[in-house]
Design a protein around this nucleic acid. Sequence first.
DNA 1: AAAGCGAACCCAAACGATTGGGCAAACAAC
DNA 2: GTTGTTTGCCCAATCGTTTGGGTTCGCTTT
Lengths: 347, 347
Amino acid sequence: MNQGQRNQPAVTLKDLADELGLHLSTVSRVLHSRDDVARRAASSATAQKVRELAQLRGYSPDPQATSLRTRRTRAIGVIVPRLSDIVLATMYEGVEETAAANNYSTFVMNSHDDQDEQRRKAGIMLARRVDGLILGDVHADSDLVHELSSRGVPFVLMNRRHPQYPSSTCDDVVGGELVADHLWAQGHRRVAVIAGETYASTALDRTGGFRKRWEALGGTLPDESVVWSHFDTEGGREAAEQIMLAPGPVPTAIFAVNDFAAIGAMGALRAAGLTVGKDIAVVGFNDTSLAAQLPIPLSSVRSPMMEIGRRAVGLLLNVLDHHSAESQLLEPQLMVRESSDFGVEGS
Amino acid sequence: MNQGQRNQPAVTLKDLADELGLHLSTVSRVLHSRDDVARRAASSATAQKVRELAQLRGYSPDPQATSLRTRRTRAIGVIVPRLSDIVLATMYEGVEETAAANNYSTFVMNSHDDQDEQRRKAGIMLARRVDGLILGDVHADSDLVHELSSRGVPFVLMNRRHPQYPSSTCDDVVGGELVADHLWAQGHRRVAVIAGETYASTALDRTGGFRKRWEALGGTLPDESVVWSHFDTEGGREAAEQIMLAPGPVPTAIFAVNDFAAIGAMGALRAAGLTVGKDIAVVGFNDTSLAAQLPIPLSSVRSPMMEIGRRAVGLLLNVLDHHSAESQLLEPQLMVRESSDFGVEGS
DNA sequence: AAAGCGAACCCAAACGATTGGGCAAACAAC
DNA sequence: GTTGTTTGCCCAATCGTTTGGGTTCGCTTT
């Protein structure tokens, strides 16, 4: 908020220099250089005067000019499937916060989980000359990441991981395991999974972690009981309907790898005359703020979404500094609520 | 995606000009000027060659250099309370789409509905030299808008309106009226409103529209029956609890000015042993994708969120072109569902 | 044959910052 | 009194565009 009045041209280094009778390079060094070079550029008395005038005139450096010279924009591009997905939106909050704290700005674009659009949006961001990218929508079989990598574009992944590139994600495998342990302990033996999109590591890992632990515990999970789906309420409803239509008895518990899918499933179950938390257990994933507040509070695996966003920025900054960037796997935590609490555990 | 390989410096106008034996100004005019001046700059044969080489070398103009020269960044700043609010996130999708279609990029920041943070974030965006701002979080008593206005900063409002400045919003007054009509027709006479934040025009207009119509119909709405609240599930739950604790009989219908508040209220009502849609009606606002998919589908006033975002960009572009910018008031539509359908209307 | 004119280009000054090198004066060392 | 070093600056090139203004040529026109 330190611009000039009424769209009057902003004050420049030259303005300050002229007013002080100094050369603009001196002013530049005082205001923008590291301490050691700044001290060499001017006496402390001069430096003081420079800083005061800059403050008074509301000087703020022109980022375009700076970028042109330094070849860095201090901007990072963020691509997500859609910001109206609260999970990604929350991660983005972490991104924005940390980026701002490091004097970076962020462009966000929605790819709608479409590979062409991903590519297009990445292109737009690169044309904008962002310093690096955070991809929140990588597909398991993505070509884009390899292409970016071979072109030397700095990027990191968020939310979904990819074996070959640095990423900041929840430990989704562990998340799936937590749910398996919980449902098994509650006495369930016939379960189904609403598994999410086949191209998302979140879906694969949560489902995979669940299955592996479930089978280790002695359970069985036939393929028909794993229904791949969209990540939204609609997708959850459809998947639940499919589960109930399947031959054989209806399962006593459903694990949906996403809260919204879980909510959709709850709707379908209720429509079928089942009472969630009594006739059938439902567990979701991400523990979005809704889960605890639903009419029937939803058990869910809490993932540290904001922190995932923060770490993603940290990772990218490391990459930009040519430091090593180690993938972050953040610990999830199971929140047991009425939707899956049959009174066996706890209380 | 048309950058050089391996972080090699991008192709510039000079590169193209040298390779073609032309002056870079000629190349610039061919590639970036309006048709008439482009035609004056080179023969059509030359122009053709220029365009082909640009394509081949993957030329993409440096936006920083362009901005430095033209004093326009083709970037717009968007400030919202929080993107993890699905309503604002959806509006942002409209913003991004339309901005991109007009070759603008968007920076988004979360203000958390805090006035200091609003001011800070606006400052960051202006320091970035955005061409204009879209404010999605304006408070009824905001000083910021007046300050921006007097400083000549181009901006428009989105989601919430302010009498003095151009905005793109839902016609929230009409939305409130629709709910009043509906509940009255359903035979309700004792109602309460979960009214939202007192500083948001959305809350004020929806509540105001409801009250005015309700009283016009012959109903009464005592002040104790209007509970101001936060816009989230938590806020809705608290407000519903307060409504039930109030002296006198519990209302037979509740209008929550926000779907999330409505969901929180539904939780509280159920906890109190009431069945929503049978013992008590609940109507929400915005018709977020959740509403229809809830275990008890929620009646809600549909607001064209995406379109609000699109129009906001349109408005801002008008302002930037010094055209007149007329506030957009978009028509809402009531979606009646199980949560408020006692079988009086319809079927 | 001189003058006029359009076509097809080229020239160079910005825009606002960064940064490797100067360079003069003051002071110290020998 | 020469040499060397530090202090406190200034100079000027550079980043990639845009754009108001030439200049040169060939062709009419009179």
